[in-house]
Design a protein around this nucleic acid. Structure first.
Lengths: 140, 140
DNA sequence: CTTGCTTCTCCAGTGACTGGAGATTGTAGC
DNA sequence: GCTACAATCTCCAGTCACTGGAGAAGCAAG
């Protein structure tokens, strides 16, 4: 089986070279064998592992969670409740983030809409920032 | 007028003491006068300025933007188009973030819903992470 | 043999804080 | 005045997940 240089692995997986090295340094990606000239040489499976990691990152999982997910993926016999739990946890996080952002959006829209585009003195944007009591929602 | 110690300012503004010192170090908050014993002594207006900053942070503005907003707030005669622009820019950012999160949410919900809670081998969560082609949307 | 590409290691920077160590200052009670 | 104890001081390191630069070495083609 043909081994891959880091540049090739990077292209095939969509993960940048420094990031691959970073993942190795934190133990997320196992250290590969080296060539005589000290270059990293990866087995073809590394592409799959890195794609897995990338995909999980794109869904916003933290490195620690990915470590666990990736370990689980190696072990087909285990029950999948932990994977499920991690996914649900991430989902809760996402929903919290969305509602926080939605509250921010609402207030910004109101600030911008109210603004008469005159001088700072009567600017709703500055005015609202200046006095939190002028927000409809104190939730953010 | 009574000057405030940093602990008092912190309580009145809702900004933690180390954060206040940090804001000073990056030039967001002007360095206050010092007591004989080298303690920071703030004028009462500092409370308002810090609340302004906190409110803007809660709306997700970056420090650089807040610097500009806070400077504008000092100058009632200026036109408010810059404040308006900064707010609109932040709004666009928020909307982008929300749509990215919504896409993540959608995929996670699908992964979790499809999962039969059996072994990893047939786990939809792991399976989907493993093969991005199994996502409906490649958008995240 | 030279040119240019890839890779190597090490280190510093990002943003916005947060917290700890160890020293000093201020204050309240006795 | 003395003793606790609280508040504050400075400096530095850590957070998270990378990202990029410097300078050196290896490698492939012409």
């Amino acid at each position: 089986m043909a081994m891959l240089a880091i540049g090739r692995l990077s292209k095939d997986s969509g993960v940048k070279i420094p990031t691959i090295r970073y993942y190795e340094s934190i133990g997320l990606l196992p250290p590969p064998v080296r060539s005589e000239g000290n270059r990293r040489l990866y087995p073809p499976e590394a592409v799959r592992r890195l794609r897995f990691i990338r995909h999980a990152r794109e869904l916003g999982f933290e490195i620690d969670a990915i470590r666990r997910l990736a370990d689980l993926a190696q072990d087909p016999e285990k029950p999948c409740c932990e994977a499920d739990l991690l996914a649900r946890r991430r989902l809760v996080e996402i929903e919290e983030k969305i509602s926080r952002l939605a509250a921010q959006r609402e207030e910004l829209v109101r600030m911008i809409g109210d603004c008469a585009h005159g001088r700072i003195e009567e600017c709703r944007v500055i005015d609202t920032l200046d006095d939190h009591a002028k927000c409809l929602h104190a939730k953010h």
